[in-house]
Design a protein around this nucleic acid. Structure first.
Lengths: 242, 242
DNA sequence: TGACTATTGTATCATTATGTTACAATAATA
DNA sequence: TATTATTGTAACATAATGATACAATAGTCA
């Protein structure tokens, strides 16, 4: 997507980027009945933030979000979904970035581009967190997974962004399920149900769930069967792309 | 909301506005079983566009959208809903604005701020078009209502924006109904059904519609009854805000 | 090898929601 | 006072969803 360096410090003037506009990515990680979010941390201040970035002058907005998500996860083919734009003045809080810079020994001008007001387009993604290599950028020097129900305090309005993303994910789950590549090629109905239960945060009844999923018309049953447990072998399914 | 002039030409350099970022408002007008959209036209070129505008440096994004919608309709209290951000490079097409300026005798520089790439946040609103005074701005010198199923060709990707807005409106109708103030304070179930049928573009069965609406829990029946037609008088309802 | 265990696939029934038809009630009109 | 058009709602049919039950079976282990 790009041959240029992308971290923020490479562009101290913000040149080449659209000013005042950012993307923030809420990257949900799922595995083994756990739902986590990828967060960035700046160790010197202990502040946490969502992975984010800026939009190049000659870059599609969606590609900018994809770039941000790919750089932080090492994954290509991330399915990203735009869900909301956060554009209130009240969200503007330059203190975190000022702290980062101060801790790096550079006292920024008051009108430094990073300290200005940003309007942020929120994207969410859902990935298998065991397949991810969390990769920090040059501002946030660490990067890792945090349980959704035990998030640390986040800078600015990032907690609200996470919550809104989760709401959107839950609403869109049926429609976007096929886009998230977080189950193996072949999976059981139990795998799928675990995914749903984890994301929705509640348990579901098995027969009704099976009926509903098959009713979506996006699953095909694979002939061979799974082997491993001391019980009847479940069928394997895969998504059918029409 | 503002005491400054807001039309585009008052700011030939774009000063005071966030560059490269715009809002476009899809203002649906409903009345008497008709659904229309408010469009701007520049008479000298015949080009049509959605009402749009820019975001002030010190203005909430939502307020910018509200300002645009208010200035074009003369209405305050417009319920606006953000629905999508349009950020592809492919949507960039400076020719309409270049035409406007050329027709006004000013040959713009190639790097004029209005000719640059814009990312646009889409909002939709739903109003009673009989209560609106369509008000042109200084670029688009006329402004009026067009039937949804007979739209003229629009500049850039504005047709796609209208279609996406309509999709979103239909999906959100149940949830956002109470916010659109396009029925009188007291209205009949028939009025409400007409509204739904017009927006959804299909007819609905009366008993099921009544059941569903009452089931939403946002209607209360008013004691008094309507008078006028040669038939049984319908009950009047109003929205109940909880 | 055969009883045991855990889990699966699905049948069955219950409940709720939705689609459809029917009809009595009634406000204005003539 | 009969007529007309429309409303409110009952009644039934169908579909969707919630919940229980149970047979099927892949491994485990006596």
């Amino acid at each position: 997507m790009s041959d240029q360096p992308t971290s923020k410090e490479d562009h101290p003037t913000g040149e080449g980027f659209i000013p005042h506009l950012a993307v923030d990515a809420v990257i949900f990680g799922f595995h083994d009945k756990q739902l986590k979010v990828l967060l960035m941390q700046y160790s010197k201040t202990g502040l946490y933030a969502l992975p984010g970035g800026f939009i190049r002058q000659n870059e599609n907005l969606n590609d900018a979000a994809k770039r941000v998500a790919s750089e932080r996860t090492g994954l290509t083919d991330i399915f990203l979904e735009q869900f909301h734009v956060f554009g209130d003045l009240a969200r503007h809080d330059p203190t975190p970035f000022a702290s980062f810079m101060a801790a790096n020994g550079t006292e920024p001008d008051a009108d430094h581009w990073l300290l200005q007001r940003f309007i942020s387009v929120g994207y969410f993604a859902l990935v298998d967190f065991t397949k991810v290599t969390p990769t920090p950028d040059k501002i946030f020097d660490s990067c890792g997974w945090y349980h959704l129900n035990a998030l640390p305090p986040l800078i600015q309005d990032h907690t609200a962004i996470v919550n809104k993303a989760l709401d959107s994910l839950r609403i869109m789950l049926d429609d976007k399920l096929i886009g998230f590549n977080l189950l193996p090629e072949d999976f059981t109905m139990g795998d799928l149900q675990s995914l749903y239960e984890t994301i929705l945060g509640k348990s579901l009844l098995r027969p009704a769930f099976q009926r509903k999923m098959l009713g979506l018309g996006i699953l095909e049953r694979v002939a061979k069967k799974y082997s491993g447990g001391a019980h009847k072998a479940p069928y394997l399914y895969r998504f059918v792309y029409k």
